[in-house]
């Protein structure tokens, strides 16, 4: 058990380092440097060179990365040369927005997908199932950058139920906060709903053929009870795995909707930093997202034990 946890932790560290190396490597391939952005387009080459030396950007890439990694392992993600802000602080400032957005999107996706999957699996092949499948296929084909404008047009501009853009902090009231978060969350949810629905529908149909479901029905238990008490839990393993992957992806991947809806989250931070060649900030965010991803996946693994007592026993042994 201890060995497997250690192996797991080592594996996770390797993943995080690989991710940050790749991010830095890709960013260094792009032309320009943060010095140009700070000094402006008309700066003399001498001034740019001087600024690069000051920021340590004239050193070889591996040494820059090594220095940064050494400090990062100590918990210091560095300071943005562009804004002079502490990167950790910048991430923490933006995190609540992205986290709320991701969690809201995940909650929406899971609950809607469970509802749809239960409805379609109850009688596969009948009209209701076909309609839900068609809608789900359509959702799967709608990326957030299309769903976003459409939702803004329908529910913000036409109906006026939601703000067109911007973020209301939770201190401004929960209602306003949720209203500003719902449309962007829904925009990223559509594809998730579709994939969750398909996965859970298939697993549910399989579970409903099991003898223990027949046994529960033979006890005269009502259909809804059998579905939620007996069939849903043993059908949800793949869904939990996929939802974990989705949450990791959402935290790092709400860039499009954050820009579209003007939300001050991590996505906006990272996209602004990339444009400005602010490698330090990009590295910080990327590592943070990678760590989150790894942690979420570990939580997913732990959750199997809650879903299935047989896993619990195997883990104890």
């Amino acid at each position: 058990m201890t060995v497997s946890i250690l192996r797991r932790a080592g594996h996770s560290l390797l993943v995080v380092i690989l991710v940050s190396v790749t991010a830095v490597g890709l960013l260094s391939l792009a032309p320009g440097s943060v010095a140009t952005v700070i000094l402006g387009e008309n700066a003399t080459p001498a001034a740019v060179a001087a600024m690069n030396t000051e920021l340590g950007l004239d050193q070889p890439l591996w040494r820059q990365y090594g220095n940064w990694l050494g400090r990062a392992l100590g918990g210091d993600l560095g300071t943005s040369p562009l804004t002079g802000q502490d990167v950790t602080q910048a991430i923490l400032d933006r995190l609540p927005v992205t986290l709320e957005l991701s969690l809201l999107a995940l909650t929406l996706s899971v609950s809607l997908a469970v509802l749809l999957a239960v409805l379609s699996a109850a009688a596969p092949g009948i009209w209701l199932d076909r309609v839900i499948n068609a809608v789900s296929s359509a959702f799967l084909a709608v990326p957030a950058f299309i769903a976003g404008p459409v939702l803004i047009y329908l529910f913000a501009l036409k109906a006026g139920w939601f703000p067109v853009s911007g973020w209301a902090h939770i201190e401004d009231g929960l209602g306003a906060n949720l209203r500003s978060a719902l449309l962007p969350a829904l925009a990223v949810s559509l594809t998730e709903i579709a994939s969750f629905h398909r996965l859970l529908r298939t697993d549910l149909i399989g579970t409903l053929r099991e003898d223990y479901v027949a046994a529960a029905r033979a006890k005269g238990m009502p259909r809804g009870y059998v579905m939620f008490r007996h069939a849903l839990r043993p059908s949800s393993f793949s869904l939990v795995t996929l939802a974990g992957i989705s949450l990791g992806r959402l935290i790092g991947g709400t860039v499009v909707v954050e820009i579209l809806f003007g939300l001050p989250g991590l996505g906006q931070l990272v996209s602004a930093s990339i444009t400005a060649r602010d490698v330090i900030t990009v590295q910080g965010v990327v590592v943070f997202v990678a760590v989150t991803y790894v942690v979420v996946n570990m939580l997913v693994d732990i959750s199997y034990g809650f879903l299935d007592p047989r896993v619990r026993k195997a883990a104890r042994a």
Binding site: E210, D211, Y212, V213, A214, A215, A216, H230, P234, P309
Partner: peptide, 8 residues
């Protein structure tokens, strides 16, 4: 083994 629900 199949007619008892494994997670209940």
């Amino acid at each position: 083994g199949r007619s008892l629900n494994p997670v209940v």
